[in-house]
Design a protein around this nucleic acid. Structure first.
Length: 259
DNA sequence: CGAACGACCTGTTCGC
DNA sequence: TGCGAACAGGTCGTTC
């Protein structure tokens, strides 16, 4: 479910909610999550986002790595509130509890994962630019949509926003990376930055079940141009939006606008 | 090395 | 209405 704007929203809200507070207890309800629980007494030093990962840095020197995958959510609850359905773990603080809800059970939680030491990947909110993308695309011939979804190249873009970016850039998802001109890379980089910033300001896209840390819907679903709009007219040209699977994933685009 | 595909899970929506 | 199929925002391991 969550892509960069949704994870960034949670990151910002967590900073306002748990920064500086001491963990009382980590309770794991889903034993599929085999994460060590010995973090009681540690203080939250910082909360960061790396791509779609949330890193909760603890004092002294431990880090919780959370990835919400497809259906994970985080909800801030008072101690008196009951546990929602599909609660998988919770981190208890004196002033409330942070609960992870995840119907499909794909989310992962790790303590001090060694993957932390891998080189950081460019973040499209900060450092995306046309030249870097074009260089990374050298020698590749994957469709540009698959390329942009590759988290080892740019971290954070998912299926909703890649469809929206390519529509705004007027580039077909099936174009091979090695066929794109410098001007097309510039349009993709610009569309990506602008859409991801706008979606973050809107606190994400609530198509069905995305909610922020306090249970509120995002607003970016009101701005979607292609995702989930199969058969509806394109806002730019009026042609019907298509949905065709690429690698098993729904790919929405306007065949008239996107060449 | 890169690309395609199934696997991991459960819930909801679609189509007959 | 009922039932199976298709679909869902993400990644990983295997195979070619």
């Amino acid at each position: 479910m969550p892509e960069l704007p949704e994870v960034e929203t949670l990151c910002r809200q967590l900073k306002q909610t748990i920064l500086g507070y001491v963990i009382e207890e980590l309770v794991i309800m889903d034993n599929k999550l085999n994460c060590p629980k010995n973090v009681a007494g540690l203080r939250v030093r910082s909360v960061e986002r790396q791509g779609k990962f949330l890193l909760i840095r603890l004092d002294p020197y431990r880090t919780l790595h959370l990835h919400l995958r497809m259906s994970g959510r985080l909800l801030w609850c008072g101690h008196a509130d009951g546990l929602p359905a599909h609660s998988r773990f919770m981190i208890c603080f004196p002033r409330g509890r942070l609960i992870c809800i995840d119907p499909r059970r794909f989310a992962t939680l790790a303590l001090d994962d060694p993957k932390d030491r891998t080189a950081p990947v460019p973040d499209p909110l900060k450092s995306i630019n046309a030249n870097k993308l074009r260089q990374a695309a050298q020698g590749r011939q994957a469709p540009v949509k698959s390329f942009l979804l590759n988290q080892a190249i740019v971290a954070g873009i998912g299926n909703i926003y890649v469809c929206e970016m390519l529509h705004k850039a007027a580039v077909s998802p099936w174009r091979r990376t090695n066929s794109l001109s410098p001007a097309e890379w510039r349009k993709i980089a610009h569309a990506g930055r602008s859409i991801l910033r706008h979606a973050t300001e809107c606190r994400g896209t609530s198509i069905s079940d995305w909610r922020d840390l306090y249970g509120e819907k995002g607003r970016y679903q009101l701005h979607l141009k292609v995702y989930g709009r199969k058969g509806l007219p394109c806002a730019c040209c009026g042609e019907k939006i298509q949905r065709i699977a690429m690698g098993g994933r729904g790919t929405y685009y306007c065949a008239a606008c996107q060449q």
